[in-house]
C-alpha cells in the first residue's frame, strides 16, 4: 500500500505527460515529421529495438558514458581532494578548472575529434571532461566540510594519513561526492552525444543525425531520444540507489 502510494504520483505524472503530448499533436494537428504522437514514437521505439537498429548504437554510447564517467570521476576525486587539502593546489589549479568548465563542450568536441580521432578515446575524453568539474567541486566542498572533530578523533586513535582519508574524510564527504556524481552521470550522457555529433561511426548521437538528416525518420529520432533519456534516468537511479545504500541510513 505504501509502495503504491509512492509509485502512484510518478505514474500519474508520466500519464499526464503522455496525454499532454498527445493533446498537443491532436490540437496542433502536427504532421509526424514535426511532432510524432506518443504511440507512433512508442511503436517505432519497440520496432527499433526489435529489428536491432538501436542495440549497437546504445552499446557504443553506454560504454563511452561509463568509461568516461569512470575516468572523469576518478580523476575528479583525486583533484577534488587535493584542492580541499592544499591551498597551493587550489590556487594553481582552480583557474584552469573554471576556464575548462566555462568553455562550451560543443565548441571543444570537434577539436577533440580532430586530435583524438572519431573513436572511443575522444568520446571518453569529452565525457570525462564534462564529469570532472561537478565531481571535483563537490568532492572539494565535501572534504572541506568534514567535521574537524572527526579528524581529531582519527588522530587520537593514531590513524594514518591514508586511514583518515579512506575511512573518515571520503566516507564523511560521500553525500556531497555522490551528489556531484549524480549531476556528472547525466552530463556524461550529454557529453557522449555531443562527442558523437562531432564525428563518429556509431552511437545514439549518430543515430539521431541519421534519423533526422538522412532517413528523415522523425519517429526514429524521438525513439532514440527516448533511449538516451532512459539511459540518463537509469544511470541517475543507479547513483541514487548507491547513495541510499551508503548514505541513506545516516
Amino acid at each position: 500500500m505504501k509502495r503504491l502510494q509512492a509509485v502512484l504520483p510518478i505514474a500519474a505524472a508520466a500519464v499526464l505527460f503522455v496525454v499532454v503530448w498527445k493533446l498537443i499533436v491532436v490540437v496542433g494537428n502536427y504532421p509526424v515529421f514535426i511532432l510524432p504522437a506518443p504511440e507512433v514514437v512508442a511503436s517505432r521505439f519497440v520496432r527499433a529495438w526489435a529489428d536491432g537498429i538501436m542495440t549497437p548504437h546504445t552499446i557504443t554510447t553506454l560504454s563511452e558514458v561509463l568509461i568516461g564517467f569512470g575516468v572523469g570521476a576518478a580523476l575528479a576525486l583525486v583533484v577534488g581532494y587535493l584542492l580541499a587539502r592544499s591551498r597551493l593546489a587550489e590556487r594553481l589549479l582552480s583557474p584552469y578548472l573554471v576556464a575548462a568548465q566555462a568553455t562550451p563542450i560543443l565548441a571543444l568536441a570537434p577539436l577533440i575529434a580532430l586530435w583524438f580521432g572519431t573513436g572511443l578515446t575522444g568520446k571518453v575524453l569529452i565525457c570525462a571532461l564534462i564529469v570532472f568539474f561537478p565531481v571535483a567541486v563537490s568532492t572539494m566542498v565535501g572534504i572541506r566540510s568534514v567535521d574537524r572533530g572527526l579528524l581529531e578523533l582519527g588522530r587520537s586513535l593514531r590513524a594514518t594519513r591514508w586511514q583518515i582519508m579512506a575511512k573518515l574524510e571520503i566516507s564523511a564527504a560521500l553525500p556531497q561526492i555522490l551528489g556531484g556524481m549524480r549531476v556528472g552521470v547525466t552530463l556524461a550522457v550529454i557529453g557522449a552525444i555531443v562527442g558523437e555529433w562531432a564525428g563518429a561511426d556509431s552511437g545514439l548521437g549518430v543515430l539521431i543525425n541519421l534519423a533526422r538528416g538522412s532517413l528523415f525518420d522523425i519517429p526514429l529520432m524521438f525513439a532514440t531520444l527516448l533511449t538516451i533519456a532512459l539511459i540518463g534516468v537509469s544511470l541517475y537511479l543507479v547513483v541514487v540507489l548507491i547513495e541510499r545504500r551508503l548514505v541513506g541510513a545516516r
Partner: peptide
C-alpha cells in the same frame, strides 16, 4: 597513545 582512551565533548560517532 594506545594506552589512552579519549572521549570528547561531543560523541563524534561516524554517522555512516
Amino acid at each position: 597513545d594506545a594506552r589512552i582512551g579519549f572521549c570528547f565533548q561531543e560523541p563524534r560517532l561516524l554517522p555512516w
